[in-house]
């Protein structure tokens, strides 16, 4: 078995330890003898139709995001084709924003988005910073809590048909008001949560791996369970942090 991963702009978008997410996917694949074929997608590299099983895009500082945005927005058609073709995707923080319709900063200037997710983002006065806990249901056998950390000025508003990634139990989420966090389109997920996201939420890492393989197999295969004791304890501590000091919507 094999999973081909395309990591978009890792040199530019890596602010909140995105490579931790990649390390978790790679190790959890290797422990199950699944080949993890990691490929970088940089400026001007085209996405060949059907090449990737999983696409990943992380977050960057404002300057890096502005450098990347025009190139990414120009990929709308090829990203659309990859997602429609069954590729799974994970977009974190800035990457999540840039896969929406647009990002408008404090001065009113807009960065174009790739339009994969039906949402738009407008920078707010105050950054929303803190630990977060979500409840997510991605399928009958894929539900659970997700513990992470958020740090964003953008308020993201979902379109009327958009599905959130999760419901906020503690923390701010997309906009600090709606109670929603992130966005989901089939196997493609977008979220503000870093920390990084996957190490202390191993069930989500496995869901992504399995969904990535579903593109070739037709169905998501079951994965052999792993010993996740440290992961569970880290999840527990982080969940506690979200309750005790996560952001509060006003």
């Amino acid at each position: 078995m094999k999973v081909v991963v395309g990591h978009l702009y890792p040199d530019y978008l890596n602010i909140y330890a995105d490579r931790g997410n990649m390390a978790v996917l790679a190790r959890r694949a290797a422990w199950r003898n699944i080949e993890f074929d990691y490929r970088v997608v940089g400026f001007g590299d085209s996405l060949r139709p059907g090449e990737h099983d999983l696409l990943y895009i992380g977050g960057g500082q404002d300057r890096e995001q502005a450098l990347v945005a025009p190139d990414l927005a120009g990929r709308r058609a090829e990203l659309e084709e990859a997602i429609e073709g069954g590729a799974a995707a994970l977009a974190v923080c800035g990457g999540y924003q840039l896969l929406g319709q647009f990002y408008r900063d404090r001065s009113g200037a807009e960065l174009p988005g790739a339009g994969i997710f039906d949402h738009y983002t407008v920078a707010g006065e105050r950054r929303m910073i803190g630990d977060v806990l979500l409840e997510c249901e991605l399928g009958p056998d894929a539900r659970g809590t997700i513990a992470g950390f958020e740090n964003h000025a953008g308020r993201t508003t979902l379109g009327s048909n958009a599905v959130p990634f999760g419901r906020v139990v503690a923390g701010f989420g997309n906009d600090g008001e709606s109670g929603f966090e992130g966005c989901r389109r089939g196997r493609a997920l977008g979220t503000y949560l870093h920390g990084p996201l996957l190490p202390r939420n191993p069930w989500l890492a496995d869901w992504l791996l399995s969904q990535s393989m579903a593109r070739r197999l037709g169905e998501p295969p079951p994965l052999a369970p792993l010993r996740d004791e440290i992961e569970s304890r880290a999840h527990e501590v982080a969940s506690g942090r979200a309750f005790s000091r996560g952001g509060r919507a006003n």
Partner: peptide
């Protein structure tokens, strides 16, 4: 530790 002076966001250890 993850007090304010350490940074409450511990994601940096992955960098």
């Amino acid at each position: 530790n993850d007090e304010i002076a350490d940074g409450r966001d511990v994601s940096w250890i992955w960098d």
